[in-house]
Write a protein that binds this DNA or RNA. Structure first.
Lengths: 291, 291
DNA sequence: GGCATTCTCTGACCTTAGTCAACGATCTGT
DNA sequence: ACAGATCGTTGACTAAGGTCAGAGAATGCC
């Protein structure tokens, strides 16, 4: 084993503290007269309801087991399970009035326990704790984001591209619009709990040379900025480009996107002259990939 | 329910992230061919061994259940349980050679999982995560510290007082020594996992007035400083003094203890003239309690 | 239109984790 | 030396949580 890593040591120490002290937050689900597993499923269904499929994914449960838990919740009159009209193999679990009340109760218990935990802290320390946990939350979530390569038609890629376009439209003085959805190149979507949180596209740019690629649609969900998702996406795209035989990457961007520009600078991209007639682009970058 | 509290909201959000992602650290104990509970006990016993009593406290297990788990570990040749020579009611669990190897394996699994979790982060982000988790760890531990009032003879109070004395002896240019152990007044010991982490003493000071008390032996474990334990101790002592009928508190301290002095200032203590002949004291404070 | 796949449910089965009370051995204070 | 407390073990019992294979209904894909 290599020399002790301070990050894993801290993480593991925190894990111990956590399971001993905050872990009790789960136990707030006890004492409701229902077993923990049942409460967890009820809580996960939430006041709006959820698809059985999603519950299974989110909670990591066996299909048979979950089915039984749902039957029990239905029997207790807390949840109604009915087929999804859009795909009648699927089923949706929707809380009844009583179910929503039980959910509220779980919510209140959890909140109470959290309060009791932080009660001994002064306001200043509470702020520090909030800060620290929010940072840790963002980084841990960012670290467990899932990157996958998809065609331009992928629904997650489309959804992310739409958000990208909407954001540029908001930020650019004269708005932003595209002719139609992307059809060219390959996209990389980063998802967390199924939600797209970052996007990046790579296309061949034969007009600029035989082994040149171009990056497009680089976008990170606003709530996820500052966690290094952008540079991770960039590294992933560069590795992808290298395996596709590209030796140089181009990209263009707008002067208002200062965070992105700083990231490109940090990642070793150099500013070059205009190489296309994109009316929204003001800055142009290039990077040589050392294959 | 009052307006949403950002601390509990962050804590609860983090709790979700945590159970879904880091929580898997526990699951690293699975896949060893042993059930989770057994592995947890084995891990807690550690390479040095542990008293059965302590295991029960640390893991919060039922005596009967733990007894059976230990029997199973003994049967598997991983642990030897033998009576504690010092008190033959107690028993000690000591790992065998195979047990130490199994413990190493658990350790390695946990480390591997922690590494995999932080692997996607850059060095900079890893530093930020380490920082954030260390802060959160300290604050959460500080929040769950247990304060209790004890007589001067209490072993935890004695242990903390000894550390206090040793530290002053190290920090004062001409050292520090006492005639004998404290016998007067009431102590408040803060413990975490059974370890004393902070100390404070309160005595009547009739020589200074009928309703005057004096604080003594204020000490916070060096690793626990900056988490507000000192001011929490102070508040506890003040409340205690108020119920004892004191309306004014005195304390003395040495100029080298700058953190403590800053804390007294913050807590509303005012500097006064020397009120005793303590040769180690250079600064003197007083605070009126509003009862 | 037919075949493979997806989604959920059901039955059969099992381990794990835990509780509770009774009991014997041992220690502590007086 | 003895009453009372502490420590751990044992027997009897239970709920919780989970696995696995098979089946039926619905859908997607060519």
């Amino acid at each position: 084993m290599p020399a002790e890593d301070p990050t894993t040591a801290t993480l593991r120490r925190f894990n111990r503290t956590y399971t001993q002290r905050i872990g009790a937050l789960d136990e707030s689900f006890l004492g409701t007269g229902r077993p923990l597993g049942i409460s967890r499923v009820l809580y996960e269904i939430g006041p709006q309801g959820a698809a059985v499929r999603d519950l299974r994914d989110r909670l990591g449960l066996d299909a048979g087991y979950l089915s039984r838990v749902l039957a029990r919740l239905e029997e207790d009159g807390l949840v109604a399970v009915r087929p999804d009209p859009a795909d009648r193999r699927r089923r949706l679990a929707v809380p009844t009035e009583a179910g929503r009340a039980a959910w509220q109760d779980l919510e209140a218990r959890s909140e109470r326990l959290a309060r009791r935990l932080v009660a001994p802290l002064t306001a200043r320390q509470r702020d520090r704790l909030t800060q620290a946990l929010a940072t840790a939350d963002l980084l841990v979530r960012a670290a467990t984001v899932h990157l996958r390569e998809v065609p331009p038609t992928d629904p997650a890629a489309r959804a992310a591209a739409d958000r990208y376009i909407a954001e540029l439209d908001r930020r650019f003085p004269r708005g932003f619009a595209l002719d139609g959805p992307d059809t060219e190149g390959t996209f990389v979507v980063a998802t967390s709990d199924g939600e797209p949180v970052a996007l990046g596209g790579l296309r061949d740019a034969p007009e600029a040379g035989p082994d040149v690629g171009e990056l497009k649609r680089m976008w990170v969900h606003p709530e996820w900025r500052g966690a290094g998702l952008g540079s991770r996406m960039l590294r992933h795209l560069e590795a992808m480009a290298a395996t596709r035989g590209h030796r140089r990457l181009l990209l263009d961007t707008n002067g208002t996107l200062t965070e992105a520009i700083a990231m490109y600078d940090r990642a070793g991209y150099r500013r070059i002259d205009r190489y296309n007639d994109n009316p929204y682009a003001e800055l142009f970058f290039s990077k040589d990939l050392d294959v």
